[in-house]
Amino acid sequence: MAVHVQDYLRMHKMPHIWCPGCGTGIALGAVVRAIHNVGYSRDEVIVITGIGCSARTNAIIDFNTFQTTHGRALSFATGFKLTRPEMKVVVITGDGDGAGIGGNHLIHTCRRNIDITTILINNSIYGMTGGQYSPLTPRGSYATTAPYGTVEPSFDICKLAEGAGATYVGRATAYHVTLLEQLVTKALKHEGFSLVEAITQCPIGYGRRNKMKSPTEMLKWQREHAVNVKAAAGMSPEQLEGKFLIGEFVNKTAPEYTKLYQKLIEDAQSKGAK
């Protein structure tokens, strides 16, 4: 059933603060449609953010919402989820917030497999502060703090999440927004920790310094460089050179943290600790 995203927005908080051509709104739209798809009520969903452009998503959506400190949203969310396991906890983060300053928290939240759905909006740059390179900025890119090009490599946040124990991992782009909505829908339904990376365009902070002046050029870049993981299975390393994968990477079941802890409480109350 079609949904008007506007129905879920706090229209009195408009206009939003994002730049023209920004991809954050596309990702947010996919998240809102996914919540609608799953059928959660506004009251049972809580959306927690940190700092940065991604963090400004939750002030304008009509769910239970709070913004936290830079990179710490997953730790706040862990405390919240442990005390309110009945609620559907969604964290929206970014490449600086989630992969940089909050990277350690991401690793350990994956490891615990606590039932939190995380959408990491990767726009390849610190946008809110005006275009500094992030841990997910491709090597050689220009940024306000990399006027000669970055010498640092970026890394694959989805592989990190998988390695750390996340039980649902996927990636899509702003261009592949239908896939993004599908992945977030599945992530929301998944019991355990899920991470969906949304690669988005930042034409102001990243594109215009890196030979992609318009949002359209950046969306085209996403279309031309993304390869679905299913198609990639039949492609040679040469064919995949310079490309990145999208699609569902991990979907497995493992004991969920709050369920395990509830069991621990029951055991402690009946048997007592050692």
Binding site: I48, F66, T68, T69, R72, S75, F76, A77, T78, G79, F80, K81, L82, T83, R84, N104, H105, I107, H108
Partner: peptide, 17 residues
């Protein structure tokens, strides 16, 4: 938690809960 920062964050998250 994984560190002191996260511990403080989790306590606040729980209190918000």
């Amino acid at each position: 938690m994984e560190d002191e920062i996260a511990s403080m964050a989790a306590v606040i998250g729980a209190s918000i809960g």
